[in-house]
């Protein structure tokens, strides 16, 4: 019986090319070759297009909850209990005027509402009505320096092993007219499960770019020293930094 089980599992492992695909998938040269498609896609599709905007009747009233678990640490619980009165969005790094924005100050900068579709890398889609301040308005407040290239989002949610979520856009993507720091979902302030108090919306790319629970925005000249160097939590796990496809 054991022998038969062993034979059966060897056959199924061979049939599935498990060892072959594991070896190929783990090979650096193969990975680099496969990754060349990302540069082609980025060059051809780009990030200048405008995502389709929908009407009220298309909105998912119960927007699907995704991403890491809602933060449950004492710091976040404290912020939540005070309705984020003590929350400040830090925006610093390669900027001329680093700043710490309270929610009311953010809200007073500018307001934009978009009803856009969230496309998850897993394959599902949901439509939400998002309101907040365009990211480019916040960047104009802090004035990125000449060598600034990327905008990094530092978040309060962690992967369960202690690593906090992080994501990034280049300055071109960050200044896209639909790149939004959302404070509200479906006409109510963001709740804890949907990324309160501030989350990003980048409707032209897959959902993992739209970081939730943002604590700090750091403008940098290079992504080399951000996490594993690929520009985001999932990017460091092998996902594409350019997530338009």
């Amino acid at each position: 019986m054991r022998r038969r089980l062993f034979i059966a599992s060897s056959v199924s492992a061979l049939a599935g090319c498990g060892p072959i695909s594991a070896a190929l998938n783990g090979n650096d040269g193969v990975r680099r070759a496969l990754a060349s498609a990302e540069a082609l896609n980025h060059a051809l599709i780009g990030t200048h297009g405008l995502a389709r905007e929908y009407g009220e009747r298309d909105v998912d009233r119960h927007f699907r909850i995704n991403g890491f678990a809602t933060p449950s640490d004492a710091h976040y619980a404290d912020l939540l209990a005070s309705k984020f009165a003590r929350y400040r969005l830090i925006v610093d790094g390669a900027v001329e005027r680093p700043a710490a924005f309270s929610l009311s100050r953010l809200d007073g900068l500018a307001r934009q509402t978009q009803i856009t579709r969230h496309d998850c890398v897993e394959g599902w889609s949901a439509i939400g009505k998002w309101s907040g301040v365009p990211l480019r308005v916040v960047l104009d407040e802090v004035r990125p320096r000449d060598y600034a290239r990327y905008v990094v989002f530092r978040c309060m949610d962690n992967d369960g092993a202690g690593t906090l979520y992080y994501e990034s856009l280049d300055l071109h993507q960050a200044r896209h007219p639909q790149a939004l720091l959302a404070l509200r979902l479906n006409d109510a302030p963001l709740d804890a499960d949907h990324g309160a108090p501030v989350r990003l919306r980048v409707p032209t790319q897959l959902g993992y770019k739209s970081a939730k629970w943002i604590a700090r925005i750091e403008v940098v000249g290079s992504l080399a020293r951000v996490g594993g160097g690929q520009g985001g939590y999932w990017e460091d796990q092998g996902y594409e930094w350019y997530a338009g496809i």
Binding site: S12, C17, S21, A22, R31, V121, E122, G238
Partner: peptide, 25 residues
């Protein structure tokens, strides 16, 4: 779908996407 029908031959969405988008080209 069982792992023997997928590439890579175990659950790996990012790996699957890399292979798919490269061979699509």
């Amino acid at each position: 779908f069982p792992a023997w029908t997928t590439i890579p031959g175990y659950q790996d969405l990012s790996g699957g996407r890399r292979w798919h988008l490269f061979f699509a080209w």
